Amino acid sequence: MDSLGALNAFVQAAEARSFTEAATQLGVSPSAVGKAIARLEERLSVRLFHRSTRSVTLTPEGTLFLERCRRIFCEVEAAEAELVQTKEAPRGKLRVSLPMAGMLLMPTLTAFMRAYPEVEIDLDFSDRMVDVIEEGFDAVIRSGELGDSRLMTRQIGTFHPYLVASPAYFERHGTPTAPRDLKQHHCLHHRFPSTGKLEPWPLMDGGTAASVDLPVTAVSNALDPLIHMAEEGLGIACLPDFTIRRQMREGTLVAVLENQLRRCGTYRILWPSSRHLSPKLRVFVDFMAANLFPAHGVAGTDSGAA
Rank of each mutant, 00 (worst) to 15 (best):
T63N: 10
P99A: 06
E42I: 00
D302Y: 10
A14P: 06
E61R: 12
E231P: 01
I72H: 15
V219Y: 10
M129W: 08
M100W: 07
R268S: 13
P60F: 05
V130K: 02
L109A: 04
L66Q: 07
D127K: 01
Y116S: 03
P167T: 01
R70N: 12
G102W: 11
R54S: 09
Q155G: 00
E42Y: 10
A290L: 04
C74E: 04
P117M: 06
V140Q: 04
M204F: 01
V84G: 08
L83T: 01
R54W: 10
T217N: 13
G235C: 04
L182G: 03
T266R: 12
M248K: 11
D205M: 03
Y267H: 11
H50Q: 14
N8P: 04
R191T: 08
I72A: 06
I236F: 12
A165Y: 11
S149D: 11
V11T: 14
H296N: 11
R43S: 09
M103N: 10
L83F: 07
Q247Y: 10
L151P: 05
L64A: 15
E171V: 08
N221T: 02
R282M: 09
L26W: 14
R142L: 07
F19D: 02
A168T: 15
A13S: 14
D205T: 02
K93Q: 12
A209S: 09
L277H: 12
P117A: 02
L188M: 06
P161N: 08
S52R: 08
E61T: 04
H190C: 06
T177L: 15
Y116P: 09
H296Y: 13
T252Y: 15
H160R: 14
L253F: 14
L48G: 04
A139M: 09
A290G: 01
G34N: 08
H190D: 05
G174S: 07
